Amino acid sequence: MKYTLKKLATLIVSLLITSVLTFTAFQIIPGDSALNALGMDATKEQLERYREEMGLNKSLPVRYINWLKGALKGDFGYSTQYQMQMKVSTLIKNRLTVTFWLAVMSFLLIVVISIPLGIFAAGKKNGIPDSFITLITQIFMSVPPFFLGMLITLIFGIILKWFTPGSYINPGENFGQFLRFMIFPAIAVAVPKIAMTVKFLRSSLLREMELDYVRTAKSKGMTKARILIRHILKNALIPVITFLAMMLADILAGAILVEQVFNLPGLGRLLVSSISNRDYAVVQAIILYIVSVVIIINFIVDLIYQWIDPRVKRD
């Protein structure tokens, strides 16, 4: 319990510091937010009225506190890149659905494929299957997800016609067709990460196999498969969990280039368009989301460490 409370306190402090840095960074950027929102034709009175309504004429600490109160309620203000101002929270909520499902499907592919392959490769060390898996992982590790997405679009979309490139289907309209379309960008995101995870897990397992407790287990007559599954895997998974957590955070942050290739209205594309249009309210919210996801996932990983291996230091 003490360990959990300590990690929880660290989580809260980290999120607070992140919010301060995120807010301050966009307040010191040169430029007039009122002018960006209303345009060059706005009168002085209109600009002053806008600053009054948005609280831009208040001191920095007061603006931060008001912004933080809103952020805690999920209210990040209004976007300025649309003719009819739209709430930032609504924009992010709509785009987050796409990024969430892309992350879930990609992560499931990574876990379901990479862990069995990594175990199999380690169990067949230096054999033909191991050499073949190592070769394949080396190839796919070097392929960027966006390029793989282009190949998938060419082969499965244009040649085989398994899907129509660029024909994104809203999950509210047809959820089954939405998932069917999303599997292709999920594969593009997952394949390079599967290759990295297989290589990382294989190395971690082989490292554990050289330790004394493995030789002790062998001397007691335990089979190689039983030692691998019941003892080695548990210890080897600890560094792999960190690796998987960082990949999940990366996907949740928005696979920007893959979203561009498949024309997905996800969080990554929203971030790019908001930066281009100097829509700082949206950029602020997305950056806070990305950093918060990384911090929260690290917190969850720390708790999982304790569950897998109680020997992890608690001080």
Score class of each variant (00 low, 15 high):
G31M: 11
Y3A: 05
L96P: 14
K93N: 09
E52T: 13
V98K: 05
R269T: 15
A71R: 10
A34M: 04
I115G: 03
K87S: 07
R95K: 13
R278G: 09
Y168L: 06
L56P: 03
E259F: 07
V13L: 10
S274H: 02
A103C: 11
T137F: 03
R180W: 11
I136D: 00
P30E: 09
I256M: 06
T242G: 14
E53H: 08
T99S: 15
T97G: 00
Y82L: 13
S203Q: 12
Q83K: 15
I183M: 15
A34F: 03
T4C: 02
S59N: 11
E210Q: 12
G118H: 01
I300F: 12
R215S: 08
A121M: 01
Y78T: 05
S106F: 01
I308D: 06
T43M: 10
F184S: 09
G149D: 04
S131N: 06
V240R: 11
L257Q: 09
E45F: 09
D41L: 15
L205E: 07
E173K: 15
I136E: 00
K58M: 12
K199S: 14
V272H: 03
K58N: 11
D75W: 03
M222F: 11
K87N: 08
V282L: 06
G127V: 00
S292L: 07
L91S: 13
G31V: 09
L211W: 05
K313N: 09
Y50D: 00
M150P: 01
M209H: 05
I113Q: 00
V291D: 12
A190V: 12
I28A: 12
K161G: 08
A195M: 14
T22C: 11
A25R: 02
P239N: 04
L8H: 01
Y78K: 10
I169Y: 08
Q83S: 15
G221K: 01
I300P: 04
D302I: 00
K44D: 14
R215K: 09
K93P: 00
N277S: 10
S114G: 08
M141P: 00
V143N: 11
M40H: 14
R230A: 04
W67N: 04
F146C: 02
K7T: 02
I295S: 01
I232W: 06
T216D: 07
Q177T: 12
I155C: 08
R311W: 03
G254M: 07
F100P: 09
K124G: 01
I133F: 08
I290L: 04
D250G: 10
L237D: 03
I17L: 06
A285F: 02
V13Y: 02
A249E: 10
Q85H: 10
